[in-house]
Simulated assay, not measured.
Amino acid sequence: MVDARVLAVPVVPRQLSAQRGRDPYPYFGWLRANAPALPELRAGGYTVWYVSRYEDVLSLLADQRLSKNPDLVPGYVSGPLGANRHLVHADPPEHARLRKLVGAAFLPRRIAALEPLIAGTARQLLDRADPAQGMDLIEDFALPLTFTLICTILGVPEQLITPATRQLLADTMVPSHASDTREQLQVFLRQLVACKRLGAATELDLLGALAHARGDRLTEEELVSTAYLLLLVGHDTTVNLIGNGMLALLRNPEQLRRLREEPELMRTGVEELLRYDSPVRNATFRVAAEPISLHGNTIQSGDIVSLLIGSANRDEARFPEPDVLDLARDPNEHLAFGRGPHFCVGAALARLEGGIAFRLLLDRLGDPRLAVPEDALRWHPCRVMRGLVSLPVTA
């Protein structure tokens, strides 16, 4: 419930609110200027606070007064049972244990070993395409690229790859279809974990490495949940990075040409694309475990705190000309992967996959342009992620 000491809550202009699904950045700018901590009372009787300024988001990402436990929120219904026993939804000390185990599967040598697979898969996908006739950079490239990588990371054995399971995994990776496949997905992931326990892990098989970890080990429920996390969160983030990043380059052709002519800009370029239109719009779930004062308001225990990463990454108090795409921007301390104890464990993998994808797309597409009017582009209706449904282009 909103505390009685909350200052008068400004009313969000209707036009900004209506367009935020397509372009949230004017809305975010209004929040930073007028309501940096905006409360919203939900139908379930609980309150969500939207925090929009960089310094506040940065601080709260590492604030121990915020918990990952949804049971602290009266009337709140969390995600599907059996899929939340992973590090993203864990508090200390359990989080430190899970983080140590999962982090061991993302060692630099394991990530580096995936580079030939990523590059080879990307080349094969582009070999099949004819950009002059048009292609969808989401459907024809980003989705199948990340699908192949995720299946490799999960170490899906041949005996489990049937037309039905292939379709199940493909459907699960589309946000609008994911809720329809949860029960089937649980069955598949349990079968997969059982195979991982029995078989030997390969160099590229991160889930197998987790299943065979010595000493402290993940339980079956934790392994299933971690596989679920890798499948959905890891996949969506990278698809959105490629889609949002390519759209940003298409909208800024001088920056696209610069990146093609100066490939040494790829490192800072990927960081800028992550900042400019972040694949994760809101940080993952957090709830106040004790009262928190912020901008004259009191966030009460049991209130949900939504940290707007997309807004923080466009904060003019932190980034000079934040609405300008500058691929040479350095330093660039964006929050696209979070910060603090819950910093994205797969950040290095996403950066690697994004850098390879952008390099090959620029090499192969020539002078790409949108094949549809910008107002025809559709975005997935998701509060946490920000990603395109499709991105048709021609060259």
Score class of each variant (00 low, 15 high):
2 V>Y: 12
9 V>G: 08
18 A>V: 07
22 R>V: 13
23 D>V: 01
23 D>N: 13
26 P>S: 09
38 L>Q: 11
41 L>M: 15
41 L>T: 14
45 G>R: 10
46 Y>H: 15
50 Y>M: 13
53 R>Y: 00
53 R>K: 09
56 D>K: 00
59 S>C: 08
60 L>R: 02
61 L>Q: 05
61 L>R: 05
62 A>D: 15
63 D>R: 00
64 Q>P: 01
71 D>F: 07
81 L>F: 04
85 R>M: 12
88 V>Q: 04
93 P>F: 12
94 E>I: 11
94 E>Y: 12
101 L>Y: 01
102 V>K: 03
107 L>C: 02
109 R>W: 08
111 I>R: 06
113 A>P: 06
116 P>H: 01
122 A>V: 11
123 R>W: 09
126 L>P: 04
126 L>D: 08
128 R>S: 01
138 I>T: 08
142 A>E: 12
144 P>V: 05
144 P>G: 10
148 T>N: 05
149 L>M: 09
149 L>W: 09
151 C>H: 07
160 L>Y: 06
161 I>Q: 14
173 M>E: 09
174 V>G: 13
186 Q>Y: 13
195 C>Q: 15
195 C>G: 07
196 K>R: 14
197 R>H: 11
197 R>D: 06
199 G>E: 14
201 A>E: 11
205 D>E: 13
206 L>D: 04
206 L>G: 05
216 D>W: 03
218 L>N: 13
220 E>P: 09
223 L>S: 02
227 A>S: 08
229 L>C: 02
233 V>N: 07
247 L>Q: 08
265 L>A: 14
267 R>I: 13
274 L>F: 06
275 R>E: 00
278 S>T: 15
279 P>A: 12
284 T>A: 11
286 R>D: 07
287 V>G: 02
288 A>N: 02
289 A>H: 03
295 H>T: 04
300 Q>S: 10
301 S>L: 06
305 V>Y: 13
308 L>W: 03
309 I>N: 00
309 I>W: 01
309 I>T: 04
313 N>I: 04
318 R>W: 04
322 P>E: 11
324 V>S: 10
326 D>P: 00
330 D>H: 15
333 E>N: 06
333 E>Y: 05
336 A>M: 05
339 R>V: 03
339 R>F: 15
339 R>D: 15
340 G>P: 00
341 P>H: 08
343 F>P: 10
346 G>K: 09
347 A>C: 00
350 A>F: 11
353 E>N: 11
358 F>E: 11
361 L>F: 10
366 G>R: 07
367 D>R: 07
368 P>H: 07
370 L>T: 10
371 A>W: 05
377 L>D: 13
377 L>M: 10
379 W>F: 09
383 R>F: 11
385 M>N: 09
385 M>L: 10
390 S>N: 06
390 S>W: 04
